[in-house]
């Protein structure tokens, strides 16, 4: 019974008016959650957590850098799952979501690289090093940009989305490379400090703001993804009747 309802709900999402309505309703809540979690996270990160005994206050960059890095990778995995669904079931709204995820993921990757540089300069004495972690993260940014470029290169949006979805799946190979780069190769970048399934090397007093910020960026990713998907859907369906009915009042 529950499975049947989930199946029906999933198929209903393929209907553009239903998807548009879902985006309109969900997005403000996701953004509100983002603001609330960010406020708590930033307060704790800047005012509650004490300075690190070795890195001093510069370690506070972690509360931006790490959530951005996690989201850049998680965003890609979400995008790859959507791409697989889009390719197998040919659901247009899922194709739109896949393509809308790329610019948001690219923004997180760029933020991760920029804050990593800003952290690297005072700690390592250099803005950049061609080590495995940094380089694989840069490759992720290029993959994101490549997907966006490929999608934009096609006049037929559906065809462009399908071709870009294949590139999304090919690029997925880079995600484990990023994750295990600090174990497989000797890198200037430190090894993983936080272990979800074991003991973390980070002091527990430093964890709460990281968790708040990680939740915040996840909610923000969802909000931005739905906002962008909604726009792309309206843009593609601008000649269709349901659009006139739905946004007739706004237009």
């Amino acid at each position: 019974m529950i499975f049947h309802r989930l199946k029906v709900g999933f198929h209903r999402l393929g209907s553009p008016p239903t998807f548009h309505k879902l985006c309109r309703i969900l997005s403000p809540w996701l953004w509100a959650g983002f603001v609330a979690c960010t406020a708590i996270g930033l307060y704790q990160a800047l005012y509650v957590v004490p300075p690190d005994y070795q890195q001093g206050d510069s370690f506070r960059i972690l509360y931006i850098h790490v959530p951005a890095a996690w989201q850049a990778m998680a965003g890609y995995v979400i995008m790859a799952i959507l791409a697989a669904i889009a390719l197998v079931w040919r659901i247009r709204t899922v194709e739109i979501m896949t393509m809308a995820a790329a610019p948001v993921g690219a923004a997180f990757t760029a933020l991760c690289l920029a804050t990593g540089s800003l952290w690297g300069k005072p700690m390592w004495g250099t803005w950049w090093a061609w080590d495995a972690r940094l380089t694989s993260m840069l490759v992720l940014l290029f993959i994101y940009l490549g997907i966006m470029g490929l999608y934009a290169a096609f006049e037929d949006r559906r065809k462009g989305a399908r071709v870009a979805c294949i590139l999304v799946l090919v690029g997925l190979v880079n995600i484990p490379l990023i994750h295990f780069s600090v174990e497989w190769w000797t890198t200037l970048h430190q090894g993983s400090t936080i272990n979800l399934f074991g003991e973390s090397k980070m002091h527990p007093s430093m964890l709460p703001p990281l968790i708040w910020m990680a939740i915040a960026v996840k909610l923000m990713f969802g909000g931005a993804l739905l906002d962008r998907s909604r726009n792309d859907l309206v843009d593609q369906d601008r000649r269709k009747r349901w659009i006139r009915d739905v946004i007739g009042e706004e237009a």
């Binding site: 300075p51 001093g56 206050d57 510069s58 960059i61 931006i64 920029a114 005072p122």
Partner: peptide
């Protein structure tokens, strides 16, 4: 943050 690191932290 400590002034030594202020630029890097606030820029981030």
């Amino acid at each position: 943050p400590d002034l030594d690191y202020a630029f890097y932290v606030w820029t981030s």
